[in-house]
């Protein structure tokens, strides 16, 4: 065909995205079915908001938050130390770090909790002979057991995250630091760690959200967090589903708050100053309320 004939403006017809409309209709129908069936379910829905604000539930919420923070703090501090040991030129150090990760990552968190919980069976007292000694049962409160069990488990994972972060920093950066006379500790603090943060931050948020839910394991050793609070409620009134639902709601609230926090922290750190393109990318993100609709109707990306 002679293309010279088409010199004028010709409108462009976008590809019709039928699949989106079909899947949307199916999903809406499924949701309606779910809501209808939940209305017929034997759940006293009025109890859910009631339990939601029970004093014991609020105390459980407080304990869940406290335990999450304590476990993550333990995990991050120990994890960074283990990661630094792992890359030490001292073979004893790096081997110890490897063994630590092998053990604490290898064992189920629940099993670790039980071992710490029952430590008094093996050791009546803890201490250094001749210096001090305390009763194991006195030290190992359920909260301490929770922090040890979940925090040490987390530290092993976190060490691997930090290690990946260290490995992401170009070796030339380390050589440049050495060439201006920086000591290894300065190079770690001023050059490697700040640059590794970009890689470390996103999985940290992920681990944090995991930990919020993971603290429910501590209900088995008597930490009065959200799940145990719900269990206490339903053991008194047998409203089992209702109590679990209100605990579920609290977990969703906590995870939502953490996700929003993660979004802002990531935005701050992901704005990799070494890469101008990535600074633009963080502006256009999935949390943008326009994002879903825009993608649904198939319009192009946000203009830069």
């Amino acid at each position: 065909m002679d293309s010279s004939k088409f010199s004028g403006e010709i409108p462009i017809v976008p590809l019709r995205k039928w699949g989106r409309w079909v899947s949307a209709i199916i999903i809406v129908l499924l949701f309606i079915a779910l809501i209808v069936s939940l209305r017929h379910a034997q759940i006293v829905w009025g109890d859910v908001p009631k339990f939601f604000t029970y004093r014991t539930m609020i105390q459980g919420l407080y304990m869940t938050v406290l335990l999450t923070l304590a476990c993550m703090a333990t995990g991050i501090v120990l994890g960074v130390i283990v990661a630094i040991m792992r890359r030490s030129t001292n073979p004893v150090m790096s081997w110890m770090a490897w063994l630590y990760i092998y053990v604490f990552r290898g064992l189920p968190a629940l099993l670790q909790l039980f071992i710490w919980y029952n430590l008094a069976l093996a050791f009546k007292t803890i201490g250094i002979p001749g210096l001090f000694s305390v009763s194991t049962n006195a030290v190992m409160t359920s909260f301490v057991v929770g922090v040890l069990g979940l925090g040490l488990n987390e530290s092993a994972y976190y060490a691997e995250i930090v290690r990946a972060g260290f490995n992401s920093v170009d070796h030339g950066q380390v050589e440049a630091a050495a060439s201006i006379g920086m000591r290894p500790s300065q190079s770690m603090r001023r050059v490697i760690l700040p640059q590794a943060m970009r890689v470390i931050i996103p999985p940290t948020g992920n681990d944090f959200i995991n930990m919020i839910k993971g603290t429910s394991l501590a209900s088995t050793i008597g930490v009065h967090e959200l799940l145990l609070s719900a269990q206490n409620i339903y053991s008194a009134n047998f409203r089992i589903m209702e109590a679990l639902m209100s605990a579920a709601l609290w977990y969703m609230v906590l995870v939502s708050v953490a996700s929003i926090g993660q979004y802002f922290i990531e935005k701050k750190f992901a704005a990799d100053r070494s890469n101008p393109a990535s600074m633009k990318k963080v502006m256009a993100t999935s949390l943008n309320p326009n994002g879903f609709f825009r993608r649904f109707v198939g319009r192009s990306e946000v203009p830069a």
């Binding site: 170009d170 030339g172 950066q173 050589e175 440049a176 630091a177 060439s179 201006i180 006379g181 050059v191 700040p194 640059q195 100053r273 070494s274």
Partner: peptide, 14 residues
């Protein structure tokens, strides 16, 4: 006391 300039510059990117 010894300056060094690298092929790949190696400026601290942060």
């Amino acid at each position: 006391q010894i300056g060094m300039v690298f092929q790949r510059f190696n400026l601290f990117s942060n």
